[in-house]
Each structure stands twice: as C-alpha cells, then as structure tokens.
C-alpha cells in the first residue's frame, strides 16, 4: 500500500516538475508571451444543438489546431446569452475564456430589458466578427397563410425568447401590418419551430438555417424573410422590405473576450480564428447552414452593431412596441 502510494506521489511530483503547473496564478501570462498556456473555454449562451452552438463547435474544432490547446465549448443558456455574457465579463481577461456573442443581445435585448440588465457590447473586447444569419417568418400550413396579407385574424406567434431577433422581427412586422398578435416565448429555435409544426402557434420567425429542412420538406410555409436581399435558397419568398415593411433585422455573431485583454492576445486569437475561417470544412459549414460570412475586425463590428441598435431603437419608438413580456 505505502510503496504504491510512494510511487504515485513520485509520479505526481514528476508531473509537477515537468511543467504540469497549476492554474491558480495570473502572473507571468499577462504579456501574452506563452499564450495560451492551458485549455481555452468558448462560452455559448444558448443550448447545445442550436445555431450559435453549432457555429461555436465548428470554430472550436478548427481554432484548437492553431492554438495548440483544447478549446472547450460550454453552454450557459439563459436570456438570449446575457447569462453567459455576464459570466464572461467576470472572467479573467487573459484570453482563455471567450464567448460567441450573439448580436441580438447587443442591439435588440437592450430594447426589452431595463438598462441595468442590458449587456453593452462596448464592455467587451471584440476579437472578430463571424457571420450573419437571416430570419424567416414561417407559418403552419394549416393556417393557409402564404403572404403577410393572408393574415386576416388575431394570431399567436412563437419567439425564440425575450429580446431576440425572432421577437423584434415579428413585433415590427405585425405592428406595421396592423395585425393583432400575441407573442409566446420559447427557449430557442428548435422548440419554437416544433410549436409551429404542431400548430401550437400560427407563425414564428426563426433563423433560416434552422428552418431550411422543414421548409424543404414542406412542413412549414415561408412567408417573408427579413434578409437584405432574397436568399438564393428561397428565390420565391419576398423579403419584408419588398413586401412593404421596414424590418431590417439580422442575427450577427462575434467572438468576444473580457474587456482589458492584452492586445497581443486578442491579435493571437484573431489570427487563429482567421485560419479557421479559411478552412474548407468551415466554409462548407457556412454554406450548409446558409450563413453569410462577416469576418470583420473588432472596430468594424462595433460600428455595425451600435448602428443597428440606433436603428432598432428608433423603429421600436416609432411603432410604440414593448418587447418585455409584461404589458
């Protein structure tokens, strides 16, 4: 017993001496010279299996090759990602903890919650933009709705949560079209889509990539997309703007780290992500999920997002829309 114990102790000491160091101190790594010196964490504020999660996993798989350390995707679902974002804000700014930041959290959620609860993207360092994702309004075929003008009664609509693009697109559309509609929030895209499939709600706005298989199978009817131009994949479905409504809402995603992360480390991460973006596997993934690359640098992305926030705030004020669930 004791001799085996001694052998084990020796093993551990050997491990410790050969550089298998602890993870306590934050000294030394501050200049980024030996970054990354341990496994990295990529936070995802949505459940496993959703669009954001899949993007995170596709990227983590590539980025780890360049960084030479494992990159673990960790799901911290809650409030369109605010839970994960707040957790990131509290993390050590050493580049080992990152997040896939959903743009809607930065430019739509603040319209739905109190200022104290809103997440401000300028409180983070943006490593790089990732891609954009279009929303599409789908209806249960049983409703008979094919265009917005077909909707001639009070309806219920599913949203993927409070303060999401799914909610804003529909709130804006129905306000402009004068349709009396009740929002029913679900937890993410898959349950929302299921509710449309089962006729629990009449319509829902979800991301194109999430709905494509169901649209292709004819199980839901696309009504409008909220894209800037018609997606090549849905040539016959008008955009909301073409249909006469001002709803320029998209989902955008970026990689962010806590504010105060040394610039060398941010650059190192950006290099790693750019290599990942260039990979064929990742590009195929984008095509398959109908994502538009938006691999811009931090300042450009911040400009895009703050612009969106101003646009949406003006629209929400104009149509007197309350995004929080309580009336």
């Amino acid at each position: 017993m004791t001799s085996r114990l001694r052998a084990l102790t020796a093993t551990v000491l050997a491990l410790a001496l050969t550089g298998c160091g602890g993870n306590l101190g934050d000294d030394g790594a501050a200049d980024g010279a030996d970054f990354p010196d341990r496994a990295l964490t990529l936070l995802v504020g949505q459940d496993a299996g959703g669009s954001t999660d899949l993007i995170a996993r596709a990227l983590a798989d590539q980025v780890k090759n360049d960084l030479g350390r494992p990159v673990t995707v960790q799901n911290r679902p809650g409030a369109n990602g605010a839970v994960a974002a707040k957790e990131l804000a509290a993390a050590k700014p050493d580049g080992h903890t990152m997040i896939v930041f959903p743009g809607t959290l930065a430019y739509i959620t603040p319209l739905a919650v109190t200022p104290a609860e809103a997440v401000d993207i300028t409180g983070y360092d943006v490593v790089t933009g990732i891609s954009q994702d279009d929303f599409v309004l789908v209806a249960n075929p049983g409703t008979g709705f094919r265009t917005v003008t077909d909707i001639d009664r009070a309806i219920t609509y599913g949203t993927t949560g409070v303060g999401t693009g799914s909610q804003l697109t529909q709130a804006l559309l129905f306000a402009q079209a004068g349709i009396k509609a009740t929002a029913v929030p679900f937890d993410g895209g898959a349950p929302t889509l299921t509710a449309v499939l089962g006729g629990q709600v009449d319509v829902a706005s979800v991301q194109l990539g999430e709905a494509q298989a169901q649209i292709k199978a004819g199980k839901v009817t696309p009504i409008v997309t909220f894209a800037q131009k018609r997606p090549s994949y849905l040539p016959d479905t008008p955009t909301a703007v073409e249909a006469g409504y001002t709803v320029p809402v998209q989902q955008s995603r970026a990689i962010a780290v806590p504010k105060g992360t040394p610039p060398q480390i941010v650059d190192r991460l950006r290099t790693a992500f750019q290599k990942a973006f260039a990979g064929q596997a990742y590009r195929d993934f984008n095509t398959q999920r109908l994502l538009t690359p938006n691999e811009v640098d931090g300042p450009t992305l911040l400009g895009q997002w703050t612009g969106s926030l101003q646009t949406y705030r003006a629209l929400v004020d104009q149509y007197d829309i309350n995004l929080a669930g309580t009336a």
Binding site: V12, L15, G22, N23, L24, R38
Partner: peptide, 19 residues
C-alpha cells in the same frame, strides 16, 4: 493523488489546482 490524476491529469477538468 488519485483525484489529481483522475480530474486534472486524465480529464483536464479546470478545477483550481496548485500543481
């Protein structure tokens, strides 16, 4: 020692550790 070998060395759990 066993916990260290299991969680830190084998599973790479991020639990704060000194060694």
């Amino acid at each position: 020692v066993a916990l260290y070998l299991l969680f830190v060395a084998a599973l790479d759990v991020t639990i704060p550790h000194m060694f």
